[in-house]
Nucleic acid binder design. Structure first.
Length: 256
DNA sequence: ATGCCTAGTGATACTAGA
């Protein structure tokens, strides 16, 4: 079983990239972020043609999340529980193959300090409270997506440049660390403790060519799923394609 | 310190991203 996440940065503008990658990578489940389209413009037909069912939660212009799956999807949540007045579409949750799959797009939070950073931390608190409930239920669960946090210095090409950046602020990293302390496993870091494993390269200044990357997209696994973890990777080459997103797809494999 | 890039909106230079 292969689970993937891909911040697509415009699902219609990059539909060709998405379909090409799906055909090559053949993930069983995909969490998408930054759809940048209202619900009625989600490209469901093309995704069905590619062999995937889909659920999504979009909005005009920005944000938006979706889950694709080769097998049956049971929708559990649209939006974060306990955050009905969240102004953005950033969370969707489903049960697939007896696993809880939470797909998230955590706020960027820049510039720091300011209202956007406060919103990031508020969103993180609501998300962590929900994660705790899932953990306490003891269900096999995976919280997958763009966390907009580099957890450690290994996750940043030049850490000293990012000390004041919302993605790397101590408050953001502390929130991520507290979340892990609930008992979640950062799947990619578990298998690759010493490799950067970047998932994002800025469009500016030829960041991809310089490998000036960030690790922003994460898989947090409950214990039963962490025990089944067999592989992980980043499809870095996809970032080099025509019309690429600024993120590359990341994936993990689970046995059985 | 700023633009460097890219998408969306709406028809222009903005916001937003990270």
């Amino acid at each position: 079983m292969k689970l993937a996440t891909f911040n697509i940065n415009g699902v219609n503008g990059r539909l060709e990239v998405l379909l090409r990658w799906l055909a090559a990578a053949q993930p069983d489940v995909v969490c998408l972020q930054e759809l940048k389209c209202p619900d009625e413009r989600f490209p469901e037909a093309a995704i069905l043609d590619a062999g995937y069912q889909a659920i999504w939660q979009g909005e005009k212009s920005w944000n938006g999340v979706a889950i694709l799956s080769k097998t049956k999807i049971q929708v559990v949540q649209r939006g974060l529980p306990g955050y009905a007045d969240d102004p953005h579409s950033r969370y969707i949750e489903a049960i697939i193959n007896k696993m809880v799959i939470g797909c998230l797009y955590l706020p960027n939070g820049n510039p720091y300090p300011g209202e956007k950073f406060d919103y990031k931390l508020r969103w993180f608190r609501k998300f962590a409270a929900h994660a705790k409930k899932l953990k306490d239920k003891g269900l096999p669960a995976a919280l997958i997506g763009d966390y907009n946090v580099m957890p450690t210095e290994l996750d940043v090409y030049k850490p000293e440049k990012y000390a004041e950046n919302a993605l790397f602020r101590k408050e953001s990293r502390a929130a991520y660390k507290r979340l892990l302390a609930q008992g979640w496993t950062d799947a990619i870091r578990r298998l690759y403790p010493d490799v950067p494993m970047y998932t994002f390269w800025d469009y500016l200044r030829q960041a991809y060519q310089r490998d000036a990357g960030l690790r922003l997209d994460h898989f947090l696994l409950s214990n039963t799923l962490a025990d089944r973890l067999t592989g992980a990777g980043v499809d870095k080459h996809v970032r080099g394609w025509e019309k690429a997103s600024d993120h590359a797809p990341a994936w993990i494999t689970l046995k059985k």
